[in-house]
Amino acid sequence: MNLLKTSMSDAPTSSTTQPPPGNRNRIFWITMSGFGVMYLGLIVAMIFADYQYANWQDFKDLLGDPTVRFSVWLSLFTCTISAILSMWVAIPTGYVLARVGRDAINSRFANQPLMRRCLRALRYVIDTLLDVPIVLPPLVVGISLLVLFQTSAGRWLDGMTNEVFAALGFPGIQGITYEIPAIILAQFTVSAAFAIRTMRDTFEQIDARPEQIATTLGASHYQAFSDVAMPQARFGCVAAFTLAWARSLGEFGPILIFAGTTQMKTEVLSTTVYLNFQMGNLKGAVAASLLLLTLAIFVLLLMRFVALAGDDDRGIMA
């Protein structure tokens, strides 16, 4: 009883020491936003410092160089191809991963515990393997690709690609390794993993129920996927494509090892930055970095406004 009395008499005293609810809300939001603002400040400061360091003349010098202009076009071309290839793999893979998740396995094999456990373990292994390109250091991806193409199967593929390109009218492209296809493959290896993750998350957020109902209405699984699931996944597709494209543009390590840095052949914008830096031309490296940055922001913003018609208020990655 005494305890109750004490706590009741304490209550008004303790509430008077706290700030009023309005102030508390403000403190909460300011504290929560503060961390993001600090990080945002770092990004803006880096961009600002780059623009401060380089001047217009450095840009003009850089763009006056035909090898740099080639690397810009090569970057844009390879990024777009590898992003398209990534989506080609990510959409079906993401869909299968989302629809054959733990719940689906549990429900389909409810009466077969061993099968259920095996499939869940397999699913876990597949998920982990698909994340390998994300967690591997980029140089390791490059070395692994190089080693892969030193095996007999890799050499055969290299030789066959050489013939295919010759038949298509590109005799200059001698296979894959140290050629333009190597750039695309290096970019694709990493960017596809990001695109698959994004598409898997997208399809996981889409209710599977309407697709099931579509099949009772006469739709095949493909029709349920293309007519019911895909229209709902359009924002996710834009996000996955954008992420794959941006990853490809910034990709550097695997390209350096697997495709090399031959001017007018396999030099992309990210390797231009590296080459300038290696030669002690810091101003050139910064100007190339700014070019990369400006291109990335411009293309990503354009994509967001064209594809999403600017109708949501999230960032470039949708």
């Binding site: 309407p210 109902i213 009772t216 006469g218 739709a219």
Partner: peptide, 15 residues
């Protein structure tokens, strides 16, 4: 898809 059964689920599940 081949059963020719119309199904109205409790949650409607419209597209």
């Amino acid at each position: 898809s081949q059963r020719q059964i119309g199904y109205v689920p409790q949650d409607s599940a419209l597209f």
